[in-house]
Design a protein around this nucleic acid. Sequence first.
DNA 1: GATTTAGTTAATATTATGCTTAACAAACCA
DNA 2: TGGTTTGTTAAGCATAATATTAACTAAATC
Lengths: 105, 105
Amino acid sequence: MFQALADQTRRQMLDRLSRGPASVSELAEPFRMSLPAIVQHLKVLEESGLVRTEKVGRVRTCTMDPVSLGMVETWINDRRIGWEGRLDRLGAFLDALPAADDQPR
Amino acid sequence: MFQALADQTRRQMLDRLSRGPASVSELAEPFRMSLPAIVQHLKVLEESGLVRTEKVGRVRTCTMDPVSLGMVETWINDRRIGWEGRLDRLGAFLDALPAADDQPR
DNA sequence: GATTTAGTTAATATTATGCTTAACAAACCA
DNA sequence: TGGTTTGTTAAGCATAATATTAACTAAATC
């Protein structure tokens, strides 16, 4: 999933899909890229689980999967919180020390 | 930043740093990789803003920057929320319709 | 039935990434 | 001072990622 998010084009595609489903050519429209290139990006997004697609007739409709995005968010949040929690515990530890600076005597 | 997060090794390095600062060799210790490889990964992390480092004497100490992780989290959250908001508005719209199924007459 | 639309497949070129070894530099220690 | 620790720089290489063009398939439309 992180790999899928690493590409600017794919992030823009997700950005589009966050505003609602789209067909492959709607998804491709903002880019100067060839359609096969878009389809390859789409494949990466789909294999990562970030996007789901379904073909009806000759049009493939793409939808974002918010659950998988949530998993990425959770990973990041856990690390960030881990760091901040460490700071908090350090602060508590320092608070619990005799205040040498305040009471130099 | 997404690019920096795309690599498994770099994510593990961040994981380590989320539990507190580390020197370059401490950071390298869990890996079977050569030290230069680690330094290259570290460079990517530093250039992305996810990690800050400072060299004192001959040891370079690495620290995670939680702010930049927060930026990634925000990007993801915005898209996820955008999607869910869209669903909510759709639900509200459907609720506001005359309930054709309930009242077929 | 012929044509257009929508997407797919395959082959390939280019570039980027991740890793290695070798050689080097500076700080610390005995 | 000489040797060890800690990290850095450079060069080379294998693999993976991103894009292209050309050819093709299937569905919809005229």
